[in-house]
Design a protein around this nucleic acid. Structure first.
Length: 468
DNA sequence: TGAAATGTTGGGGCG
DNA sequence: ACGCCCCAACATTTC
């Protein structure tokens, strides 16, 4: 048994069901938990402001948990390899364990770290803690990655055995911890206090993640099939950010889902649909590993020349979309929910993305960037898949001609107008029944910045032309 | 996990 | 009784 091992925490900010931590505890007498803040190593997709807010609180939660276990988190900033080497020096660690991540820049960084540590005789071990199945394991008959979700998920489920989540391991108390920073020193919170809405809506950290999973599986999951489409109801799991930061593992989620299904047949259909969404998360990460260029380029080459406009910061139409001033209530409501809470209901994400890429003909990359900066659950794989899906240029994408009509979508999925009225108070003087299309009634809501019917026709014309 | 245009069917009013 | 028209409801096609 070795004397000391470092566990390099990244986006696996939990103690339970954490394979790297578990293995280190098993292999070494003493485990030193480390987090190194090195956002520049994730360029060009450094986390945005909302994501940093979450990280700040998640790190505080993890630090408190580790403190309580007697093994305080050593917090550093700077070059990951250099910091690890310093800590190896300071602690006499013989090994570094971590859990894998799958973004292109992080994969490259980790390969470099693994190689350099190996050259110096340091043992490294890395584990899958982020996904149900390792990318590369799910391939079609000809050995190529799946590009369609349904066969992917079918094959993945065939490969998959959901394991019981491991409990938090017992850590040995560290008497002399190496020097480190406080979470506040990382300056993850912005100078301007705009994040009140985030704090009202979210509690980062492992304990809150487990509580949210439990709450969701106990109740809303049963009605998930229909309610997940209703932005006016609390019908979704709201686990996205917890999963993104690894405060909870997909195995814990899948295990809880299977257990609930086994215990009661009621709600099994809802849980099945929910597991499909976990499947989309898997699919997104697998695709990103196989097609790393898709963060910036369409997966489908025939869309490379599509005449989307890349806006600059002064582009008024783009600003109107970002700030929720398009004059289309469901779009405005979604963008304001995003700005205020760092999150948007998935149904509404599709609607605002369709509006940007089709009614406004603005590039999906611009939308992806805005989401990246404003979402607390901003995740490169899911964000890339989601945007390319709606834009029509990605894997298993919605055909381009599927253009959402935000009025129809509002009538279908926000039938009582509660969602739009909540986020757009200016609808107050619009009579009930007209909130999704206020220009058809007396009142003062601003006019839409584009004509829905006309812009739809223009988009279809552009598509027809681009296909030739 | 679309929406709109176009086509079809069938009930009912009416001469 | 019958043909005709209208139109809602549903189905199919198109983008």
């Amino acid at each position: 048994m070795m004397s000391t091992a470092i566990v390099w925490f990244r986006r696996d900010l939990r103690l339970a069901d954490n394979p790297a931590l578990q293995a280190a505890v098993a292999d070494a007498k003493r485990v030193v938990p480390v987090y190194i803040h090195a956002p520049e190593e994730e360029a060009p997709w450094q986390p945005g402001a909302a994501s940093n807010w979450w990280l700040h609180h998640s790190l505080r939660a993890l630090a408190a948990d580790l403190e309580a276990h007697g093994a305080p988190l050593v917090l550093r900033r700077g070059d990951s390899l250099q910091q690890l080497l310093e800590l190896i020096d300071a602690t006499g660690a013989e090994a570094v364990y971590w859990n894998r991540l799958y973004e292109p820049a992080v994969l490259k960084r980790d390969a470099r770290v693994r190689e350099s540590l190996g050259e110096r005789g340091i043992v490294t071990q890395d584990f899958n803690a982020y996904l149900l199945l390792e990318p590369g394991r799910v391939l079609n008959q000809s050995g190529a990655p799946y590009k369609v979700f349904t066969p992917f998920w079918k094959a993945a489920r065939g490969e998959l055995t959901v394991r019981a989540p491991a409990p938090p391991p017992k850590l040995t108390s560290i008497k002399q911890a190496p020097a480190g920073l406080r979470v506040d020193d990382l300056q993850l919170l912005p100078d301007i206090l705009w994040y009140g809405g985030l704090a009202e809506n979210w509690t980062p950290g492992e304990a809150a993640a487990l509580a949210q999973l439990d709450e969701f599986i106990q109740a809303p999951a049963a009605d998930y099939k229909d309610d997940r489409n209703r932005p006016d109801k609390p019908g979704t799991s709201r686990l996205s950010a917890h999963l993104h930061f690894g405060e909870i593992s997909p195995h814990q989620v899948a295990w809880a889902a299977e257990k609930q299904t086994a215990e009661s047949a009621r709600g099994a259909a809802g849980i099945e649909v929910f597991m499909n969404e976990i499947g989309w998360r898997e699919f997104a990460h697998h695709l990103l590993v196989h097609f790393p260029h898709t963060t910036d380029e369409p997966l489908r080459p025939d869309f490379k020349a599509f005449p989307w406009r890349m806006p600059d910061d002064t582009d008024e139409a783009y600003r109107a979309w970002c700030t929720g001033h398009t004059g289309v209530p469901l779009v405005d409501a979604g963008m304001r929910e995003l700005w205020h809470t760092g999150w948007m209901h998935n149904r509404v994400r599709m609607v605002v993305a369709s509006f940007l890429t089709k009614n406004q003909l603005i590039s999906w990359q611009a939308g992806a960037r805005w989401f990246w900066d404003t979402l607390v659950d901003a995740n490169l794989a899911s964000n890339t898949l989601g945007w390319q899906w709606t834009a029509g240029c990605g894997a298993d994408a919605a055909p381009f001609f599927r253009i959402f009509n935000p009025i129809r979508q509002g009538e279908k999925f926000d039938p009582h107008e509660r969602y739009v009225r909540r986020w757009c108070p200016a609808l107050a003087d619009i009579p009930q029944g007209a909130a999704h299309a206020p220009w058809t009634a007396d009142g003062t809501y601003p006019e839409p910045i584009v004509d829905l019917k006309e812009s739809r026709a223009v988009a279809l014309e552009a598509y027809k032309h681009a296909r030739q």
